[in-house]
């Protein structure tokens, strides 16, 4: 039984991500149909890479909402940032054996992204991700 294939995608996801445009338009951002498709596809890819199954797309919705209000994001790097943040999120979830829940991890990640990395996803995905994993695993 290929559970990732069955569980990681739902027909409603496309609409749900598209509807995020209502929330982010106030920041001058917009997700095109192609952007939505890429984000969903890359989410599935990140889940498979990190040997995970997900029953909902609310993490992606929260990442979109959080990044849209960030001063470090503009229309040129928005989609790329969403994709990168999804990858980091699932990587940490698996590397920490789910010791941290979704809300807490998103909070830690975005605080680090804003305060320590000053919007640099390169910094976040490297040394800082390792530090976060180490701290969580020590708890």
């Amino acid at each position: 039984m290929n559970l990732p294939k069955i569980l990681n995608y739902d027909l409603s996801y496309y609409n749900r991500v598209s509807k995020m445009n209502k929330k982010i338009e106030k920041y001058g951002l917009l997700l095109t149909q192609k952007d939505v498709a890429v984000i969903i596809e890359e989410r599935e890819h990140a889940l498979i890479e990190n040997r995970r199954v997900e029953l909902d797309i609310q993490v992606t919705e929260q990442i979109i909402e959080e990044l849209s209000s960030s001063p470090f994001v503009d229309k040129d790097n928005f989609v790329e940032s969403i994709i990168e943040m999804q990858e980091i999120f699932y990587y940490i979830k698996s590397e920490t054996d789910d010791r941290i829940n979704d809300e807490e991890l998103l909070e830690v990640l975005f605080e680090c992204y804003r305060e320590k990395c000053r919007g640099s996803l390169e910094l976040l995905s490297g040394r800082e991700t390792d530090l976060i994993i180490r701290q969580i695993n020590l708890l």
Binding site: L47, V53, E54, L55, Y90, D102
Partner: peptide, 20 residues
């Protein structure tokens, strides 16, 4: 799906494939 969410106490929407 229902039991996975019970397993994560609805605090996580994803689990390892192995757990699923």
């Amino acid at each position: 799906k229902k039991i996975i969410l019970k397993y994560t106490k609805k605090l996580s929407t994803s689990v390892k494939t192995e757990t699923a």
